[in-house]
Amino acid sequence: MDEQSVIEARDFTKKFGSFTAVDSISFTVAKGEIFGFLGANGAGKTTAMKMLTGLLTPTSGQARVAGFDVWHEADKIKRNIGYMSQKFSLYNDLTVVENMTLFGGIYGMSMPEIKDKAAQVIDKLAIKSFKDRLVASLPLGFKQKLAFSVAIFHRPQIVFLDEPTGGVDPVTRRQFWEMIYAAAENGITPFVTTHYMDEAEYCHRVSVMVEGKIMALDTPAALKARYDCKNMGEVFLKLARNPG
């Protein structure tokens, strides 16, 4: 693995019985790049991501995440990543600050560090008046932004975002992507799955998955040029209609 790549997968495969969800995919993600993982529902994006984060055991193939092997060093990987799933995954019955304290504590941050960081996040999201309210009572847009902030609270090397902007209004989506850019500038590599094609344009590089395989992987500009399309949406449709 070269110095600059944080994820490296080779022939990565997951089968559920006779169904192959992820079919021998290979790719690398460089440090600091925003990597988009595109595909229709059921294309295998979430499964691949779950294997990379140690939630699922792969069937075969190799992968290293943050320099550690997914087969044998899952625990070390977990120390170095953040994760935000498509289901909202903060505790609704804890307050904003309590959620931050919990996850900071789990990743071994000290109490002063946690307090410091929490103050920053609250300041940045401008949710001072919400900080002692139960998360359940927050508007959805705030919840998503908060979930992202908690996922990178412990400054992981990589943050995995599984359909992070589902059900969010355009303004909040915009703000959300600004947060992703800011994280990338701070050296955190965002790995994003999405099926919003306009979001794909925001990524540095995207891969397009169809039926478990990666059909294309390049910068959005290069992909559009190669398939002679105006936008990523057309690229995607072309690939999805004529697999292979």
């Binding site: 939630l55 994760y83 289901k87 995954s89 789990i106």
Partner: peptide, 12 residues
Amino acid sequence: IGTIEQLNVTPI
């Protein structure tokens, strides 16, 4: 609720 997944990706 789905929060178990969030705990499972942490190093606990």
